[in-house]
Design a protein around this nucleic acid. Structure first.
Length: 270
DNA sequence: GCCCAGGACTATG
DNA sequence: CATAGTCATGGG
């Protein structure tokens, strides 16, 4: 869904139903955003800036989180090893939920294959510099998808039904990022998501953390989280729920960031 | 063959 | 509320 070019990342952002290919680069001074398919109009530029700030969590002061890490020796190394790392968001709620459902209970390599098949079959594409840039299919496209065709792409019957059902929930106005934002608290947002077939505790928390930037989401039961905690000697197995809760209690208000850093540690251990 | 993978559903006490 | 069985596929 994006393409890396040296120190820059390119991605299609949909602004007022129009696809814009943007390139974001960064240095010590901050982030620079430019449009690759025509200059932004004034109103669009503001929208894009806000999206990019949100995407990279650019305005976050990480110091409070780093103080918590420094006060906890097993993870204190992260403040230098992952210095400045922000929780990268997924701008689109439907894509986030679809990705989470695809990733349920299968290994990430296979999950990536399934997502790629879904995108290549249903996405809209833009070509720039002879290279394709894809947009994740919108809910109205997946809502009309054929479950048997998804089965043929090695989606389980359950995942196929969940994806189409979630797409329909967006299409009929039952679910949207705006609707979730309007809800008063985290618990009501979790319940709203979990009312939809295919979205359980793990998926709801994943989406709220990665898309809506809820600060205190813990994807309970997450295999990667368990592996990271085991690697740091914080738990010996996934049944130690009280040890996990004690850890997250130390990081109240930063649970999502802690999960993100622990996931990061899996691909680049201490 | 067995177990696990960035789970969720249903059915059953 | 807690547990057991089921779904599907790939990799170690």
């Amino acid at each position: 869904m994006h393409r890396i070019k040296g120190d820059a990342i390119r991605k299609v952002l949909i602004i007022e139903d129009k696809p814009h290919l943007v390139e974001v680069s960064g240095d010590a001074q901050g982030l620079t955003v430019r449009s690759l398919n025509g200059a932004f109009e004034k109103s669009e530029a503001e929208v894009v800036e806000n999206i990019v700030r949100y995407w990279f969590d650019a305005d976050r002061d990480l110091q409070p989180f780093y103080e918590l890490l420094n006060n906890y020796p097993p993870l204190a190394y992260m403040t230098t090893a992952f210095s400045g790392l922000r929780l990268i968001a997924m701008p689109d709620l439907f894509e986030t939920l679809a990705w989470a459902v695809i990733g349920q209970q299968i290994n990430l390599v296979f999950a990536c294959k399934l997502k790629r098949r879904l995108v290549e079959r249903y996405c809209s594409a833009m070509v720039y510099d002879s290279e394709p840039y894809l947009s994740f299919p919108s809910p109205d496209v997946i809502a009309k998808a054929d479950a048997d065709e998804l089965r043929g792409m090695q989606f389980s019957a359950g995942k196929a039904a969940y994806l189409i059902g979630i797409a329909k929930a967006f299409e009929c106005g039952e679910l949207s990022a705006g609707l979730l934002h309007e809800l008063p608290d985290l618990a009501s947002r979790q319940e709203k998501l979990k009312a939809i077939k295919g979205i359980g505790t793990w998926t709801a928390n994943y989406a709220l953390m990665k898309c809506l930037r809820e600060p205190s989401c813990i994807p309970y039961g997450d295999a990667g989280l368990h592996n990271a905690l085991k690697a740091h000697g914080i738990i010996k197995d996934k049944t130690e729920t009280e040890a996990m809760q004690q850890l997250f209690d130390r990081f109240a208000g930063w649970e999502s960031y802690l999960v993100f850093y622990l996931w990061r540690s899996l691909s680049d251990p201490g």
